[in-house]
Structure formats: C-alpha cells, structure tokens
Computed example of a mutant assay.
Amino acid sequence: MLKALIIGISGQDGSYLADLLLKKGYDVFGTSRDAQGGSFRRLTYLGIKKEIQLISMDPEDFRSVLVAIKKSKPDEIYFLAGQSSVGLSFEQPAETIQSFTIGILNVLEAVKMEPRDIRVYHAGSSEAFGDTEGAAANEKTPFQPRSPYALAKASSTWLVNNYREAYDLFACTGILFNHESPLRPARFVTQKIIQTAKRIANGSGEKLVLGRLDVSRDWGWAPEYVEAMWRMLQQEKPDDYIIATGKTQSLEDFVSKTFELLGLDWQNHVVQSPDLMRPTDLSISKADPQKAKIALNWEAQIGLERLIKMMLEGEFLNS
C-alpha cells in the first residue's frame, strides 16, 4: 500500500486530495500544528476523518517536519500548507512569506536526507506570474509577483526547482489557477459572493460589498485539480505544470451569474467599496494548460456556471 503525507490536510485542497488518495487505496497521513485539537471539519464533511492518520507538525520547524516524515514513511508528500489569502498577505507579509518558503525548504531538506526515494508535490500559484497584460501564461512565463503572497509562491517554486536540479529530487510544482468549491473559507471572494447572494435571496436585505469587479480570473473546480496533483507524481520525470481551465471570465461575470441563478438582478444588490481594493491587483489572469492536457492527460471538465451551481447547493463550512 502506498503512503501519502499531506501537509495542510485541513484546507480545501488537502481535504479533497485525501478523499481522492483514499479512493485510490493509499494509506493517508495528514499534518496539523495541533492534530489533537485542530479543526478538521472538511474531513468530517467528506466522511473521511476516521480514515486519516493525523500527525502534529509545524512546517516551519525542521525537526518537527523530519519526525513527521520518519513516522509516516511516505512514498509521496503533498505540501499544501501556508497562509492562503492574497488579501491577508498585505496585512501579514512576513508570516505569509515564511509559511511557504521555510515550510517547503524544511520538507526538501528532510527528503534530501532520507535514504528512500520520496516524491514531493508543491502547491504553486498563478499569482506568481503577476500581470501578463492579457497574455496566457505557460510554464515558461517569467514570474512577476505583485503581492506578498505571490512573492512567497514564486520563491517557494524556485526553491523546489533548485532542489530538483541540485539534488536530483522528484519534486514538482503545480501552478494552480483559481479553483473553488463549497469548502472555500468565507474570506475568499467567491465564497463571500455565494453566501451573501444566498442570504439576499432569502430576504436578508443586505448589500454585497466588493472591491473591483473588472478583474478577470480562470476559475476551476477544486476536486478536479487535486487529481492533477496526483498525476504529476505518477510521471517518469518531475516537472512543473499549469493547472487551469484555459477560460478567463470577469468577477462581474461571476457575480451576475450567481444572482441570475437565484432569480435576482445583481445590480440591485451589489455596491463597490474602495476599502476592499488591494494596493496592487492583477487585472487579467489567463492560462495555457496545454502541457497538463498532453503530459498528464488532464483537462478541466467543469465550467463557471456549473461551478457556481454546485457552490450554491453545497454546505458551507465557515472556517
């Protein structure tokens, strides 16, 4: 039985990935800073918490990482931990940068020391590309980060590349574009839109307050994206891959479609606030996911409207 260690198992991606790996017959271990007292509501929601072997681990403490790896003896490690909000990274820049760069560095150092071959997946981000001025980013597009979060993701990706080349590690980065699900926390704008629109449809009388509506993103369905993560570690050679739908739509499109599905006109319920506009923000985020389609035989199947429908229908876990 193959063993997998998921660092950051309590989040959206970690929970869906754990579910996928269990279905594939893996023995799954997951880490949290406090495995005994931590919240694993997403794992409980998916009905898999009892099947996960939880380990307390601090990614920023090398000894803690090394102990977790020796305890779990994984064939594959998935590093999904870190402060995951772009907006919050402007308020907590040092914490954000450290959570990604020190975390993955400790994992790579520990794997380098292990006598067994361990394959490592690292969660990168499309934010690292910055503003490509409307051009679709591919794996050769230079990083131009425009937020502390993006800078952290770019740095951690470079670390993975360096260790792969210098020490011949099987280490991959998935450069994921936006991917959503009912398991998204409330601080993410997509979940904020979904939950506020549902309350308005139920007669709350409130307004949905947003920042810029003209930004455009490539939105995909999170459970599909974790399949791509797994496929990266099944290849003969390690490499980096962009994971996206290849279709870009504006935040206004997301908002209008959400209210339309609830039988409402969004313009009657949405206001914009300059307080919610970031110091720097990407106008357009576009992706070219052809490499993943060819090499991984992976392609996104769920479009924006169906994604919104499933988020509207899903149970919201406010954490």
Rank of each mutant, 00 (worst) to 15 (best):
G205L: 09
K49N: 04
S126I: 05
L317F: 01
T190Y: 06
V111A: 00
Q191T: 12
T248N: 11
L213G: 00
S256G: 00
P148S: 03
D265E: 13
L213I: 07
F129R: 02
L176G: 09
F62P: 04
D265S: 09
E91P: 03
S72I: 01
P115K: 14
Y16V: 01
G38A: 10
R212N: 15
L21S: 12
S64N: 03
I194S: 02
M311Y: 01
L296C: 01
N138W: 08
N268F: 06
Q53D: 02
A166M: 12
T248V: 14
L233W: 06
S64F: 08
E109V: 14
T280K: 15
H122F: 14
P182M: 02
L169Y: 07
D214E: 12
L88M: 11
N178F: 05
E299I: 07
L46P: 12
M113G: 11
T101G: 00
S204D: 15
E95C: 00
Y167W: 15
T258R: 02
D265K: 13
A295Y: 00
D239R: 09
Y26E: 02
L213F: 00
G203Q: 10
F188S: 07
R278S: 05
P93Y: 10
S126Q: 04
Y225M: 14
P74T: 03
Y167D: 06
V65P: 03
D288C: 13
N268Q: 13
G82N: 03
P185E: 00
P289L: 05
L108S: 07
P182I: 01
E313L: 08
Y149W: 10
A152N: 06
V86C: 06
L276W: 13
N202K: 14
S156K: 04
D239W: 08
G30V: 08
P289N: 11
A228H: 08
E165L: 13
P223M: 04
G103A: 09
I104Y: 03
E95P: 00
F40N: 12
G314V: 03
D214K: 06
A292W: 07
Y149R: 11
S285E: 15
Y121E: 05
F316W: 08
M113F: 05
T141E: 09
I102N: 06
H179W: 01
G314H: 02
N161M: 11
Y121H: 15
S250C: 07
F79E: 01
D239Q: 10
K257I: 13
S283T: 12
A18E: 09
E299K: 14
K153Q: 05
T31P: 03
N297Y: 00
R212M: 10
E91G: 00
Q53R: 14
E60I: 15
L108V: 08
K24M: 10
E133M: 07
L105S: 12
G87Y: 07
K140Y: 06
L183T: 00
L21T: 14
K237P: 03
E236Q: 14
I200R: 08
K112M: 05
K24T: 02
D214M: 09
K291T: 05
A228N: 07
P289K: 13
S39E: 15
M310W: 14
K23N: 11
L2H: 09
S155E: 10
L54F: 09
S204V: 13
N178I: 04
